[in-house]
Protein backbone atom coordinates (compact mmCIF):
# COMPACT_ATOMS: atom_id res chain seq x y z
CA UNK A 1 0.00 0.00 0.00
CA UNK A 2 3.03 2.26 0.35
CA UNK A 3 3.25 5.16 -2.02
CA UNK A 4 4.91 8.53 -2.34
CA UNK A 5 3.73 11.95 -3.28
CA UNK A 6 6.27 14.57 -4.40
CA UNK A 7 8.98 12.63 -2.58
CA UNK A 8 6.96 12.23 0.62
CA UNK A 9 6.67 8.64 1.80
CA UNK A 10 3.13 7.60 2.70
CA UNK A 11 2.01 4.24 4.12
CA UNK A 12 -1.05 4.36 1.85
CA UNK A 13 -2.57 6.78 -0.66
CA UNK A 14 -5.21 8.11 1.78
CA UNK A 15 -5.13 11.68 3.06
CA UNK A 16 -7.60 13.22 5.50
CA UNK A 17 -9.04 16.24 3.65
CA UNK A 18 -8.59 19.73 5.01
CA UNK A 19 -11.50 21.15 6.99
CA UNK A 20 -13.04 17.80 7.90
CA UNK A 21 -10.37 16.60 10.31
CA UNK A 22 -9.42 19.63 12.40
CA UNK A 23 -5.83 19.10 13.54
CA UNK A 24 -6.46 15.41 14.19
CA UNK A 25 -6.90 15.44 17.97
CA UNK A 26 -10.64 14.71 18.06
CA UNK A 27 -10.38 11.73 15.71
CA UNK A 28 -7.35 10.39 17.58
CA UNK A 29 -9.66 9.86 20.56
CA UNK A 30 -11.71 7.46 18.42
CA UNK A 31 -8.89 5.66 16.58
CA UNK A 32 -5.15 5.86 15.99
CA UNK A 33 -4.88 8.51 13.26
CA UNK A 34 -1.49 7.23 12.13
CA UNK A 35 -3.48 4.80 9.94
CA UNK A 36 -3.73 7.63 7.38
CA UNK A 37 -1.14 8.14 4.65
CA UNK A 38 -1.11 11.85 5.49
CA UNK A 39 -3.28 14.52 7.07
CA UNK A 40 -4.19 17.85 5.54
CA UNK A 41 -5.06 20.15 8.41
CA UNK A 42 -7.86 22.71 8.72
CA UNK A 43 -7.25 25.67 6.38
CA UNK A 44 -4.81 28.12 7.97
CA UNK A 45 -4.50 31.85 7.50
CA UNK A 46 -1.69 34.15 8.62
CA UNK A 47 -3.89 35.64 11.36
CA UNK A 48 -6.66 33.94 13.37
CA UNK A 49 -10.12 33.98 11.80
CA UNK A 50 -13.44 33.77 13.68
CA UNK A 51 -15.31 32.15 10.80
CA UNK A 52 -18.86 32.73 9.60
CA UNK A 53 -21.96 33.09 11.78
CA UNK A 54 -24.10 29.96 12.22
CA UNK A 55 -25.89 28.13 10.68
CA UNK A 56 -22.79 26.82 8.94
CA UNK A 57 -24.01 23.43 7.74
CA UNK A 58 -27.04 22.06 5.91
CA UNK A 59 -27.83 18.55 4.85
CA UNK A 60 -28.68 17.96 1.19
CA UNK A 61 -29.63 14.93 -0.88
CA UNK A 62 -26.56 12.64 -0.65
CA UNK A 63 -24.35 15.30 0.83
CA UNK A 64 -24.04 18.55 2.72
CA UNK A 65 -23.40 22.24 2.33
CA UNK A 66 -20.94 24.01 4.58
CA UNK A 67 -19.92 27.57 5.11
CA UNK A 68 -17.46 27.53 8.00
CA UNK A 69 -15.56 30.54 6.70
CA UNK A 70 -12.02 29.38 7.50
CA UNK A 71 -12.29 29.57 11.28
CA UNK A 72 -8.73 28.85 12.44
CA UNK A 73 -6.25 29.94 15.13
CA UNK A 74 -3.73 31.36 12.63
CA UNK A 75 -0.44 29.92 11.41
CA UNK A 76 1.53 30.94 14.52
CA UNK A 77 -0.81 29.25 17.00
CA UNK A 78 -0.98 26.19 14.76
CA UNK A 79 2.81 25.85 14.75
CA UNK A 80 3.06 26.38 18.52
CA UNK A 81 0.04 24.51 19.85
CA UNK A 82 -1.06 21.90 17.29
CA UNK A 83 1.85 20.92 15.08
CA UNK A 84 4.22 19.48 17.73
CA UNK A 85 1.62 16.92 18.76
CA UNK A 86 0.58 16.12 15.20
CA UNK A 87 4.13 15.88 13.84
CA UNK A 88 4.83 13.40 16.64
CA UNK A 89 2.32 10.95 15.19
CA UNK A 90 4.79 9.87 12.53
CA UNK A 91 2.65 10.73 9.51
CA UNK A 92 3.21 13.52 7.00
CA UNK A 93 1.37 16.73 7.82
CA UNK A 94 0.07 18.84 4.96
CA UNK A 95 -0.59 22.49 5.83
CA UNK A 96 -3.58 23.86 3.94
CA UNK A 97 -3.12 27.61 3.53
CA UNK A 98 -5.60 30.31 2.57
CA UNK A 99 -5.42 34.08 2.45
CA UNK A 100 -7.03 37.29 1.26
CA UNK A 101 -4.01 38.71 -0.54
CA UNK A 102 -0.87 37.44 -2.21
CA UNK A 103 1.20 38.88 0.65
CA UNK A 104 -0.87 37.05 3.23
CA UNK A 105 -0.46 33.73 1.40
CA UNK A 106 3.28 34.30 1.01
CA UNK A 107 3.83 35.28 4.65
CA UNK A 108 1.88 32.26 5.91
CA UNK A 109 3.76 29.87 3.62
CA UNK A 110 7.10 31.37 4.62
CA UNK A 111 6.34 30.72 8.31
CA UNK A 112 5.18 27.17 7.60
CA UNK A 113 8.25 26.45 5.48
CA UNK A 114 10.36 26.71 8.63
CA UNK A 115 8.13 24.28 10.54
CA UNK A 116 8.04 20.46 10.43
CA UNK A 117 5.13 20.28 7.93
CA UNK A 118 5.81 17.96 4.98
CA UNK A 119 3.90 19.83 2.32
CA UNK A 120 1.90 22.96 1.62
CA UNK A 121 -1.57 22.74 0.11
CA UNK A 122 -2.45 26.10 -1.38
CA UNK A 123 -6.17 26.66 -0.94
CA UNK A 124 -7.25 28.88 -3.81
CA UNK A 125 -10.72 27.43 -3.82
CA UNK A 126 -12.55 28.29 -0.58
CA UNK A 127 -16.02 29.45 -1.63
CA UNK A 128 -17.02 30.78 1.79
CA UNK A 129 -14.95 33.89 2.45
CA UNK A 130 -15.65 37.29 0.98
CA UNK A 131 -12.12 38.24 0.03
CA UNK A 132 -9.58 35.83 -1.32
CA UNK A 133 -9.87 32.08 -1.42
CA UNK A 134 -11.74 31.16 -4.54
CA UNK A 135 -10.92 34.48 -6.22
CA UNK A 136 -7.39 33.17 -6.79
CA UNK A 137 -8.60 29.93 -8.27
CA UNK A 138 -11.20 30.81 -10.86
CA UNK A 139 -9.05 32.21 -13.66
CA UNK A 140 -5.86 30.66 -15.06
CA UNK A 141 -4.06 34.03 -14.78
CA UNK A 142 -4.87 34.46 -11.08
CA UNK A 143 -4.00 30.80 -10.34
CA UNK A 144 -0.68 31.15 -12.16
CA UNK A 145 0.19 34.37 -10.34
CA UNK A 146 -0.54 33.18 -6.80
CA UNK A 147 1.14 29.82 -7.39
CA UNK A 148 4.31 31.47 -8.71
CA UNK A 149 4.34 33.97 -5.85
CA UNK A 150 4.06 31.24 -3.22
CA UNK A 151 6.42 28.88 -5.06
CA UNK A 152 9.15 31.49 -4.76
CA UNK A 153 9.05 31.43 -0.95
CA UNK A 154 7.96 27.82 -0.29
CA UNK A 155 10.65 25.41 0.84
CA UNK A 156 8.30 22.40 0.83
CA UNK A 157 6.54 20.56 -1.97
CA UNK A 158 3.63 22.73 -3.09
CA UNK A 159 0.21 21.29 -3.92
CA UNK A 160 -2.48 23.61 -5.28
CA UNK A 161 -6.10 22.81 -4.38
CA UNK A 162 -8.40 23.63 -7.26
CA UNK A 163 -11.97 24.82 -7.32
CA UNK A 164 -14.58 23.04 -9.44
CA UNK A 165 -16.40 26.34 -9.91
CA UNK A 166 -14.54 27.11 -13.14
CA UNK A 167 -15.15 27.03 -16.88
CA UNK A 168 -12.23 24.76 -17.79
CA UNK A 169 -10.47 22.75 -15.09
CA UNK A 170 -7.70 21.59 -17.45
CA UNK A 171 -6.72 25.19 -18.12
CA UNK A 172 -6.43 25.96 -14.38
CA UNK A 173 -4.52 22.74 -13.72
CA UNK A 174 -2.00 23.62 -16.43
CA UNK A 175 -1.66 27.15 -15.06
CA UNK A 176 -0.74 25.77 -11.62
CA UNK A 177 1.72 23.32 -13.14
CA UNK A 178 3.35 26.01 -15.30
CA UNK A 179 3.78 28.25 -12.24
CA UNK A 180 5.68 25.56 -10.37
CA UNK A 181 3.13 23.49 -8.45
CA UNK A 182 4.47 20.05 -7.49
CA UNK A 183 0.98 18.55 -7.35
CA UNK A 184 -2.66 19.56 -7.59
CA UNK A 185 -5.60 18.43 -5.46
CA UNK A 186 -9.23 18.57 -6.50
CA UNK A 187 -12.08 19.11 -6.15
CA UNK A 188 -12.93 21.59 -3.45
CA UNK A 189 -16.67 22.05 -2.85
CA UNK A 190 -19.17 23.15 -5.46
CA UNK A 191 -20.95 26.40 -4.60
CA UNK A 192 -24.58 25.79 -3.72
CA UNK A 193 -27.42 26.87 -1.46
CA UNK A 194 -30.36 25.55 0.53
CA UNK A 195 -33.63 27.33 1.30
CA UNK A 196 -36.07 26.84 4.18
CA UNK A 197 -39.47 27.00 2.51
CA UNK A 198 -41.49 28.00 5.59
CA UNK A 199 -39.39 31.03 6.46
CA UNK A 200 -38.25 31.65 2.86
CA UNK A 201 -34.76 32.13 4.22
CA UNK A 202 -31.48 30.51 3.24
CA UNK A 203 -30.55 27.71 5.63
CA UNK A 204 -26.94 28.94 5.82
CA UNK A 205 -26.27 32.33 7.40
CA UNK A 206 -23.76 33.00 4.61
CA UNK A 207 -26.60 32.26 2.09
CA UNK A 208 -24.35 30.11 -0.09
CA UNK A 209 -21.97 27.34 0.85
CA UNK A 210 -19.89 24.52 -0.55
CA UNK A 211 -21.52 21.24 -1.57
CA UNK A 212 -19.69 18.01 -0.76
CA UNK A 213 -20.40 14.33 -0.28
CA UNK A 214 -21.49 11.57 -2.67
CA UNK A 215 -23.70 14.09 -4.52
CA UNK A 216 -20.59 15.58 -6.15
CA UNK A 217 -18.67 12.37 -6.90
CA UNK A 218 -19.49 12.18 -10.63
CA UNK A 219 -18.42 15.80 -11.11
CA UNK A 220 -15.24 15.18 -9.13
CA UNK A 221 -14.35 12.06 -11.11
CA UNK A 222 -14.83 13.92 -14.38
CA UNK A 223 -12.66 16.83 -13.25
CA UNK A 224 -9.91 14.62 -11.80
CA UNK A 225 -9.79 12.76 -15.12
CA UNK A 226 -9.67 16.01 -17.12
CA UNK A 227 -7.02 17.56 -14.87
CA UNK A 228 -4.88 14.41 -14.77
CA UNK A 229 -5.01 14.24 -18.56
CA UNK A 230 -3.80 17.85 -18.78
CA UNK A 231 -0.77 17.81 -16.45
CA UNK A 232 2.30 15.69 -15.71
CA UNK A 233 2.48 16.47 -11.96
CA UNK A 234 0.64 14.16 -9.52
CA UNK A 235 -3.08 14.71 -8.95
CA UNK A 236 -4.74 14.11 -5.60
CA UNK A 237 -8.42 13.32 -6.12
CA UNK A 238 -11.36 13.91 -3.85
CA UNK A 239 -15.10 14.52 -3.91
CA UNK A 240 -17.64 12.24 -2.28
CA UNK A 241 -15.43 9.22 -1.61
CA UNK A 242 -17.38 7.00 0.80
CA UNK A 243 -15.97 3.53 0.07
CA UNK A 244 -12.76 1.78 -0.93
CA UNK A 245 -14.27 1.21 -4.36
CA UNK A 246 -14.90 4.96 -4.77
CA UNK A 247 -11.22 5.57 -3.99
CA UNK A 248 -10.16 3.02 -6.63
CA UNK A 249 -12.29 4.86 -9.20
CA UNK A 250 -10.50 8.14 -8.49
CA UNK A 251 -7.14 6.41 -8.93
CA UNK A 252 -8.26 4.86 -12.21
CA UNK A 253 -9.29 8.37 -13.31
CA UNK A 254 -5.72 9.53 -12.68
CA UNK A 255 -5.34 10.33 -8.98
CA UNK A 256 -2.04 9.27 -7.38
CA UNK A 257 -3.59 9.66 -3.94
CA UNK A 258 -7.05 10.49 -2.63
CA UNK A 259 -8.52 12.62 0.10
CA UNK A 260 -11.44 11.67 2.33
CA UNK A 261 -13.47 14.66 3.44
CA UNK A 262 -17.17 14.73 4.21
CA UNK A 263 -17.18 11.00 4.91
CA UNK A 264 -15.33 11.84 8.15
CA UNK A 265 -18.25 14.06 9.15
CA UNK A 266 -20.92 11.54 8.23
CA UNK A 267 -19.11 8.59 9.78
CA UNK A 268 -16.34 9.24 12.34
CA UNK A 269 -14.77 5.85 11.56
CA UNK A 270 -14.77 6.44 7.79
CA UNK A 271 -10.97 6.75 7.54
CA UNK A 272 -9.91 3.30 8.80
CA UNK A 273 -13.01 1.72 7.25
CA UNK A 274 -12.35 3.08 3.73
CA UNK A 275 -8.62 2.27 3.90
CA UNK A 276 -9.48 -1.34 4.85
CA UNK A 277 -12.08 -1.58 2.09
CA UNK A 278 -9.58 -0.28 -0.44
CA UNK A 279 -6.96 -2.88 0.51
CA UNK A 280 -9.52 -5.65 -0.03
CA UNK A 281 -10.78 -4.10 -3.26
CA UNK A 282 -7.27 -3.85 -4.69
CA UNK A 283 -6.75 -7.56 -3.99
CA UNK A 284 -10.07 -8.41 -5.63
CA UNK A 285 -9.02 -6.45 -8.70
CA UNK A 286 -5.87 -8.54 -8.92
CA UNK A 287 -3.60 -5.54 -8.66
CA UNK A 288 -0.32 -6.10 -6.81
CA UNK A 289 0.47 -2.41 -6.30
CA UNK A 290 -2.27 0.22 -6.00
CA UNK A 291 -0.05 2.55 -8.03
CA UNK A 292 -0.86 0.36 -11.04
CA UNK A 293 -4.42 1.68 -10.87
CA UNK A 294 -3.38 5.30 -11.35
CA UNK A 295 -4.56 6.66 -14.69
CA UNK A 296 -5.53 3.21 -15.92
CA UNK A 297 -8.90 4.33 -17.30
CA UNK A 298 -9.72 2.49 -20.49
CA UNK A 299 -11.45 4.52 -23.16
CA UNK A 300 -10.81 2.06 -25.93
CA UNK A 301 -14.32 0.84 -26.46
CA UNK A 302 -17.31 -0.74 -24.76
CA UNK A 303 -16.96 -3.12 -21.80
CA UNK A 304 -15.67 -6.59 -22.58
CA UNK A 305 -19.08 -8.22 -22.75
CA UNK A 306 -19.47 -6.48 -26.12
CA UNK A 307 -22.96 -5.19 -25.43
CA UNK A 308 -23.78 -1.76 -26.73
Amino acid sequence: MRTELCGIEMKNPFIAASGTFGFGREFDELYDISCWGAISVKGLTLHPRAGNPPARIAETASGMLNSIGLQNPGVGAFIRRELPWLADRGIPVIANVAGSSEEEYADAVRKLSDSPVSMIELNISCPNVKRGGIHFGTSPEAAREITARVRACCKRPLMVKLSPNVRDIAEIARAAEDAGADAISLINTITGMAIDTESRRPVLANITGGLSGPAIKPVALRMVWQAASAVKIPVVGMGGIMTGDDAAQFMIAGASAVMIGSANISDPMAGPRIIGEFERRVRELGVSDPRDLVGSLRTDGPPDDGQI
Partner: peptide, 16 residues
Protein backbone atom coordinates in the same frame (compact mmCIF):
# COMPACT_ATOMS: atom_id res chain seq x y z
CA UNK B 1 -28.77 23.59 19.90
CA UNK B 2 -27.07 24.25 16.55
CA UNK B 3 -26.95 22.53 13.17
CA UNK B 4 -24.22 19.97 13.70
CA UNK B 5 -21.70 18.09 11.58
CA UNK B 6 -19.17 15.62 12.99
CA UNK B 7 -20.29 15.88 16.63
CA UNK B 8 -16.73 15.62 17.99
CA UNK B 9 -15.39 19.14 17.45
CA UNK B 10 -13.41 18.71 14.25
CA UNK B 11 -15.54 20.30 11.52
CA UNK B 12 -16.44 23.55 13.34
CA UNK B 13 -19.98 23.59 11.91
CA UNK B 14 -21.95 24.02 15.15
CA UNK B 15 -20.54 27.38 16.19
CA UNK B 16 -22.00 29.48 19.02
Amino acid sequence: EERMGCGIGACLACAR
